[in-house]
Simulated scan of single mutants.
Amino acid sequence: MAFTASRVSREQVRSDVRRRLARLRSKRWHVLQAAGAAGVAWFIAAGLLGHVQPVFAPIAAVVSLGTSYGQRLRRVTEVTIGVALGVFLGDIVVQIIGEGAWQMTLVVAMAMVVGIFISSGQVFRNQAAVQSIFVMGLLPTPGAAFTRWTDALIGGAVALVAASIVPAAPLRRPGEQAAVVAKKIASLLRAGGQVMLDADAVYGLKVLADARATDPLIRELQDAAEEGMSVLTSSPFRFRHRSHVHRVAELVEPLDRALRSTRVMVRRAAVSAYRGDIVPEEYYRLAFGIADAVDVVEAELAAGRSPDGLSEEARAVLLHIGEQTGLVQRSDSLNAEVILVQLRSIIVDLLGVTGMGQFEATDALPPLPPRGSEGSDGS
């Protein structure tokens, strides 16, 4: 028992280390960018302009860049003005009435009042207050207001330039994550089809647990799409990627719907296996066929192809399978009927991934055959 607990503990530690290393890898560009901006801001203020200890230049640069791409332009502006305001007010108060507890109270109140008056942003007024505290508490040298104010502006300007320089990785990530979601849909379709084929309730519960754990995949896709759009906003150098990123962002909704429909289908397959319901064999063949079409979409997304150019082959396969749903045998089992309906929903959602509109995709499927139909002969 002690050996097992120790082994589990080691596995948890290794998993935690891997997660932390993955987080570090995902943020390495932010680290390099902030550190580089801090160094450049210091060099300009100290090396080129001759300012003594220009600490506010790197502070403004680092604080401005310490956020997501979408917030950076606004953050740079707020932080630059907020830091400059706080530095200026702190220096003015030190020169006129000196330093002390009540002077600290006064300068913080002034900074926050002016900050609230100028902007409703909390970051703005907080930076104004914090920098006024910094000036009064650590650098109360009179007569340096203009120099420190200039340093803050230098740091903000450097941050603004740095914010417009972004790697291509955030622009590739939405397509890569969309491929991950598509791969999971294909995997669940095949697993659900196998549950129908084998009527294995135990395996069905395992597949269902896997399907229920897929919400993070969609959240990651949404985050990746938002980050990609934010990069386009903050970087004029990535304009040529605009169409690609916009199109990938449009895949989020149909992929989300397809994954949700797949979860429902898997649940009904598991329940059918548990209750011993008979599911027509055409249904698992439909699931396998849809999975094959999703494989094509996944491969093209993973390869970085534009969603506008997603394979016509995948659409043709999906349309063919959709036609087959109008020829299959109907079932008296409610669970089997829901499986058939969900398979059709998955097809409609995946046709949306290939660029078809919701109504167009829905109209492309034939009506279900009447109950009691013997279905097609598979030819």
Rank of each mutant, 00 (worst) to 15 (best):
M1Y: 15
F3K: 15
T4S: 14
T4F: 14
V8L: 15
R10F: 11
V17Q: 05
L21F: 15
S26M: 12
S26P: 07
W29E: 12
G36D: 01
L48S: 03
V52P: 11
P54I: 06
P54L: 02
P54G: 04
P58V: 12
I59W: 02
V63I: 15
L65K: 03
G70I: 06
R72Q: 14
R74F: 08
T77Y: 13
E78L: 13
A84R: 01
A84S: 12
V87E: 07
F88I: 12
L89H: 02
L89A: 10
Q95E: 15
I97A: 13
M104G: 04
T105E: 10
L106H: 09
A109M: 08
V114H: 02
V114Y: 00
S119F: 01
R125C: 08
Q127N: 15
A129T: 02
A129L: 08
V130C: 04
V130K: 05
Q131S: 15
T141S: 09
T147P: 07
R148G: 14
T150R: 07
I154W: 00
G155P: 00
S164V: 08
I165T: 10
I165S: 08
A168C: 11
A169G: 08
L171Q: 00
L171V: 04
R172T: 15
K183L: 14
L188G: 05
L189N: 07
G193H: 03
V195W: 02
D198K: 08
L205P: 04
V207N: 00
V207E: 01
L208Q: 09
D215M: 11
R219Y: 11
D223Y: 10
V231I: 13
V231Q: 01
V231C: 05
L232S: 05
F237P: 07
R240P: 07
R242S: 08
H244E: 13
A249N: 12
P254D: 02
L255C: 01
D256I: 10
A258C: 09
A258K: 07
R260P: 00
V264N: 11
V264E: 13
M265Q: 03
R268W: 06
R268H: 15
Y274K: 15
R275L: 04
D277I: 01
D277M: 00
I278N: 13
I278S: 14
I278K: 15
Y283T: 04
F288Y: 12
G289I: 05
V294H: 00
E298F: 03
E300C: 06
A302W: 02
G304M: 00
L310C: 11
S311H: 10
E313W: 09
L318S: 06
G322D: 07
E323V: 15
T325Y: 05
G326I: 06
G326A: 08
L327N: 09
Q329F: 07
D332C: 11
L334N: 13
L334V: 12
I346P: 01
I346F: 01
D349S: 09
L350H: 01
L351R: 02
G352D: 04
M356W: 08
M356V: 10
A361N: 00
T362Q: 15
L365K: 07
P369V: 08
P370S: 10
E374A: 14
E374R: 12
